[in-house]
Design a protein around this nucleic acid. Sequence first.
DNA 1: GTTAGGG
DNA 2: CCCTAAC
Length: 334
Amino acid sequence: MESWGESFPAGGAAAAAGTMEGWTGGFPAGAHLFSDPPLYWCPSSPILPPETAFEVYSAYDNSEIQQYLEEPQDESHLPDLLGIVSSPTSDHDTIIQTCAHVPPEMEKVREWGWGPMPYTALPEQEEVPATTVLGSERGGNEEEDEEKEEMREAAGSTCPMPCRRRRTPVPTAAPRGEGSCSSSIDLLAYMPKSGSGLRQPRQKRHWWPMPDHFWDFCSASKSNKHGHRKNNDEWEPEEVKLLVDGISNLGVGRWTKLKSKWFSPQKKKKNKCFSASDQVRPVRTAVHLKDKWRNLVKAYVSKPTSKNKGKNAHLDKDLINKIKLLAVEYPYPK
DNA sequence: GTTAGGG
DNA sequence: CCCTAAC
């Protein structure tokens, strides 16, 4: 499947809102969609996160959506669902909201002084979300279910980022079944009856900037349990240049320091090494930086096979020379 | 929490 | 890029 970023050009409601710093995820203009983690990191991922849940709020009859919800759910449905939402047939709102797995590290953001939210969270009971898990290969692992349940509880009671936007309850059907987090949730239970005439009032949407650490957690948190790689994007020459600059300043081994000084989103902006669109680039962790340097040294110094060099074929000669010099100055592995 | 090194 | 032992 295409990544979301490829499927839809950037723009749309988020760009119009203009206040959600770092948001560059693309989706059709007019689509009322947000996701947690945001679409920010989707463009770099050829697949959806393994536990991406969709909550569908709808107050009008939409047979097209209904049709899709009747079918087996997987990420291949996303473009179609989003496409439908992008062109509503009436002035009613349909909101497709993705709520992906919340890394435990998210809690730390709040500990670090997460400020008061500019909204009042609605009590969970008032919400009637329809949720399905997309792209999940899970099969009822009890331990994982408990774990997820805990996270959902935490999200509901203290309302961290995954539910940071005001939501209006949908005065439609109650769920027919228990809303467990399996892939077989009865989505249709949440769909309004045809011709019910119910509609949801337009909502006021609020966006506000996320702290820098938020992006780190979104796109480079711990790996998931399904072996998927978080950062599938290749290193850009600009990134390699930042890495080389950092090492020439700090030496080898201070990867965390290097990351915070050369690879934070703020630094990217200040350095102007990264354009706005580069904000969707994969986040490099300290380990990534270490690994990249190891590979660069291997490619140009310790084991310069054509295969090793091939992956950095886009680097210019000056940069390669700098790598060679630094590799001599700071041997690595030591 | 970070880093080094194997996978 | 992931994983994890060792610090």
